[in-house]
Design a protein around this nucleic acid. Structure first.
Lengths: 241, 241
DNA sequence: CGGTCTCCTTTGGGATCCAAAATATGTATT
DNA sequence: AATACATATTTTGGATCCCAAAGGAGACCG
């Protein structure tokens, strides 16, 4: 039976998740030895895994110094959203004439779930309650789920890979503030999903395309505001441990 | 003084060039030992380099079997061009209001060189002479040079990286046929460059955007035809040597 | 001709070892 | 006290040797 995955692959995937999920803060220096200890392997597969992360742009090698988790600047975040907007526009356009009835149902379900969570989120914001970051994470995931239905219908693996890699330029939990000013933006997001859904159902590829583009751009602005309102986050921790 | 690069990095870069340049045909199996022999290093940095290529999608790891250079299907080629079209459209739109006088001059020079080579290429095609593949390669490079001026002005590193990675989904030399049917397509390419140039000079970001998009799409079709007319190329060499 | 059982090659990975590079630490000097 | 210098420590990049297991190539057999 084939092994189907190597340790280097496994380690890379775990670290990838932790980095994009925000469990490892940008700027952190990854020590080879402590990773090999943690995963109970030798340094060899660890280094291979780190090479992969480096090629993915999640991490940078500084020769003879180590590997550190990259932090994304506001400019990079903006650019990533511009890219994602174009790619999602393309995927949506292509997906529209390919959507089956089953796809539409899946889209509806994703939309409904997203709608629910949006309501909860607005509610929580209005009551100024304890900010439950897990709710925000769920909301983001529901958002992604909606878009994933479209990706699946488009059947464009390259676009999907690039767009997902561009959208993971995000910070994860702990970056969510329930400020009321953002309230209407959350709602807007939901309305945009519905508009996209209707354009697709109506078979308007061009319309869906434009809506998808605008949607990603505006949700990019939302995320920028959220991050800004929370403060850029961790600065350069230097080279210590 | 810092080393500035590791052996793994060097090896990865060399192999990358050879793969995208077509010196290593898709389907080839890369043996770790012969690579380590060739670069006069141990297997360790070789494997790290291969991991990087794998993350870049140039190569696939098949556990316990080896690493093989990926070959791109016609479908992938199409998709890559769709992606590149969107990204170049974006870059061109952003670049337009940022173009300085010096940038415009550089664009002109690139255009002139491209124009010359296009003439030579058509000439050669008409005379049905010995097909000089190096001329075709030069032509492609001049083409890229034109677009690179625009990328530089756009100052969008992510877009540039992705688009260049999408455009390198190409086969290199030896895939050029001087069929007369393609003659007008080469000319069309040149005219499109001029149109883009003029739109940028006129400050029309929206116009330049549309032109750039169409241009990439149509040059994608051209490349598809060239490849088709030559025959898909090497098929699966199996796992031998 | 299809199926099984060796033998060989290659991979994935571990263990050690070493030189060079960075960093940290301590000491001397002004 | 602040700076410059010398030394010690840590960590990386890499080599080398090693080994188990996977896959492929016959050889062998029904």
């Amino acid at each position: 039976m084939s092994t189907l995955s190597t340790k280097a692959d496994d380690i890379a995937r775990v670290l990838e998740d932790e980095i994009v999920g925000g469990a490892i803060v940008p700027g952190t220096v990854l020590r080879q030895e402590q990773l090999s200890e943690r995963f109970d392997v030798s340094r060899t597969p660890v280094r291979e895994a780190l090479r992969r992360l480096a090629a993915l742009g999640l991490v940078t090698f500084e020769p003879n110094r180590g590997v550190r988790v990259r932090s994304i600047s506001p400019a990079e975040l903006r650019e990533a959203h511009l890219v994602r907007a174009e790619l999602e526009a393309l995927a949506t356009e292509v997906a529209t004439p390919r959507m089956t009835a089953a796809d539409l149902v899946a889209l509806d379900e994703a939309e409904r779930r997203f709608s629910e969570l949006t309501l909860e989120l607005r509610d929580q914001a209005r009551r100024s309650e304890a900010r439950d970051s897990s709710l925000f994470v769920e909301w983001m995931q529901a958002n992604y789920a909606f878009h994933d239905v479209i990706y699946a219908a488009a059947a464009m693996p390259l676009v999907e890979r690039l767009a997902k890699s561009a959208r993971r330029t995000f910070i994860g939990d702990r970056v969510w503030s329930a400020r009321v000013e953002l309230d209407e933006l959350y709602a807007k997001n939901d309305l945009q999903h519905r508009a996209i859904r209707e354009a697709i159902a109506a078979g308007s590829a061009a319309g869906a395309r434009l809506l998808a583009r605008e949607h990603v751009l505006s949700s990019g602005r939302l995320i920028e505001m959220v991050i800004e309102s929370v403060g850029g986050g961790g600065r350069d921790p230097g080279w210590g441990s």
